[in-house]
């Protein structure tokens, strides 16, 4: 056990824990955009910088392990000023779209901007991914991408790479022109993306959106929300049911404890609880590359064999 002080509060933490996790365990929240409890820390957003032992050089809370006797300040005026500047840099490169953004209400950038009083662009200059918000990849029936909103936190890449055989996403390019690309910078449709939705579940902003939720125009704060488990296999991946009026949609939740998430599971949950059975799509290899094609629910859920068997058995017993 390690004893340290955070914001004057004496706390105990396990050896090897990061400052951020130790703080969080004691209800002290440190802002972070690239941190995810289920992923390795990237320490790229730099928002979680904190003061350690009074030194002028701040350290990232997500990547700094706790040490006995450590004295951490998470909210000094200097630290808050750095965070404000970092948020400003992000907003200088972010379209002003909170009014119509699907992510509004649960967007971390919006949340911290509010908390730190940072407004949209103060600096006229180059903008990555265009001036206006727009979906830059609408090829997938399940996922919408808007590169203009991407803050390059890298969580989508990390979570996709957690399953070796997926690893569809990567950073591409360099510096200011860095972007997230699928395979060789292909559309989600043309790429090897399996539409599991892991990336959507971890995206802190509106860069990756669940298309079926978006199309029902339900934002989380106005919906009744409930977490359920998928019963398609023993993993039991978690999904959230969003209910507004008579509409009910589902979306995958960030996977933990090695749960994979998959399209079949998603459709299984959809079939089970969503208010409307919308056409399922599956990917097929064609001469022109990979294409999403309509399919039937029975095929999508791989029920044909079972249904045949049931029908056969029942007709047998009827005899």
């Amino acid at each position: 056990m390690i004893k340290l002080t955070i914001n004057g509060q004496k706390i105990a933490a396990e050896d090897g824990m990061s400052i951020l996790d130790a703080a969080l365990a004691h209800g002290i929240e440190i802002p972070a955009l690239c941190h995810d409890p289920d992923l390795k820390p990237e320490s790229s957003c730099r928002l979680c910088l904190v003061e350690v032992d009074g030194r002028p050089w701040p350290r990232v809370a997500c990547g700094t392990p706790v040490r006995d006797g450590m004295v951490v300040e998470t909210n000094t005026p200097e630290i808050r000023e750095i965070r404000r500047d970092i948020l400003q840099l992000l907003l200088d490169n972010h379209p002003n779209d909170c009014l119509t953004c699907q992510k509004a209400g649960e967007c971390l950038l919006q949340k911290y901007a509010y908390e730190y009083g940072v407004t949209f662009r103060t600096h006229e200059g180059a903008r990555r991914g265009g001036e206006r918000a727009r979906f830059t990849d609408t090829s997938s029936p399940y996922i919408l991408r808007d590169e203009s909103k991407c803050i390059l936190c890298g969580k989508c890449i990390s979570t996709c790479a957690e399953l070796n055989e997926r690893s569809v996403l990567s950073f591409a390019g360099r510096g200011f022109e860095t972007k997230v690309a699928a395979d060789r910078d292909e559309t989600l449709e043309a790429s090897t993306c399996v539409s599991c939705g892991r990336c959507v579940a971890v995206c802190p902003v509106g860069a990756l959106i669940d298309r079926r939720v978006r199309e029902k125009k339900i934002r989380p704060w106005e919906a009744d929300r409930q977490t359920i488990q998928c019963k398609a296999c023993e993993y039991g991946c978690e999904y959230e049911v969003l209910e507004k009026g008579s509409e009910r949609v589902i979306r995958p939740l960030s996977p933990s404890e090695g749960r994979p998430l998959c399209l079949k599971g998603r459709l299984f949950v959809e079939a089970e609880v969503s208010s409307e059975l919308r056409t399922p799509y599956k990917k097929e290899e064609t001469e022109k590359g990979r294409k999403f094609v309509r399919t039937t629910w029975i095929e999508a859920l791989e029920l044909d064999g079972i249904l045949d068997r049931i029908a056969h058995t029942e007709s047998e017993s009827d005899k």
């Binding site: 990567s170 591409a172 360099r174 690309a181 699928a182 395979d183």
Partner: peptide, 13 residues
């Protein structure tokens, strides 16, 4: 992964 190859190609000038 193919994405890794592409990511590396586009990183180095």
């Amino acid at each position: 992964p193919l994405s890794t190859v592409y990511g590396v190609v586009t990183f180095y000038s």
